[in-house]
């Protein structure tokens, strides 16, 4: 299993403007699944508390931003430092078929789960064939 942040750093889009503030930016590792009635997005965001997580939907763009909380290590010396902390940010394009009012988000043990239900007209349906007599 590869370190999540190694891959995250590799994927940073250089064209995107970097915010002028302290801390590194990371792109959270994400799984996207599609079911018949919804799209499920899961993002790894360890160390992000619920109050530091911001999810915005602007037209077709869904942006998630989460800042990691770091507990202060007073009078402690760093002995091994293998990962750094910062802010997770990622944008997704939301297709028209999603019902925007019913998007549901849940944060559990450092994983953000977004459930994007499909609008009624976008759900697959069986078409009944009427037989003419």
């Amino acid at each position: 299993m590869k370190d999540t942040k190694d891959t995250a750093v590799e994927k940073v889009d250089r064209k995107q403007a970097e915010p002028a503030r302290k801390g590194r930016m990371y792109i959270p590792n994400t799984d996207i699944y599609e079911k018949d009635d919804s799209i499920l997005v899961r993002c790894d965001m360890p160390g992000v508390a619920q109050e530091n997580l911001d999810i915005r939907l602007d037209n077709n763009e869904l942006e998630i931003t989460g800042t990691q909380t770091v507990s202060a290590m007073d009078e402690m010396d760093p002995l091994i430092n293998e990962y750094a902390t910062g802010t997770y940010r990622r944008r997704f394009n939301i297709p028209q078929l999603i019902d925007r009012d019913k998007i549901h988000a849940r944060l559990h043990n450092g994983v953000l789960e977004l459930e994007l239900p499909k609008a009624e007209q976008a759900k697959p349906r069986k078409i009944e064939i009427s037989t003419e007599r």
Partner: peptide, 26 residues
């Protein structure tokens, strides 16, 4: 070889603190 999970270790003469990012476990 394998460095998962990545660890941060702090210490002083009285104690050691180890932290690791492990999202999505119980």
């Amino acid at each position: 070889l394998s460095r998962f999970p990545a660890l941060n270790v702090w210490g002083n003469t009285d104690q050691i603190i180890v932290t690791a990012e492990l999202p999505g476990l119980e």
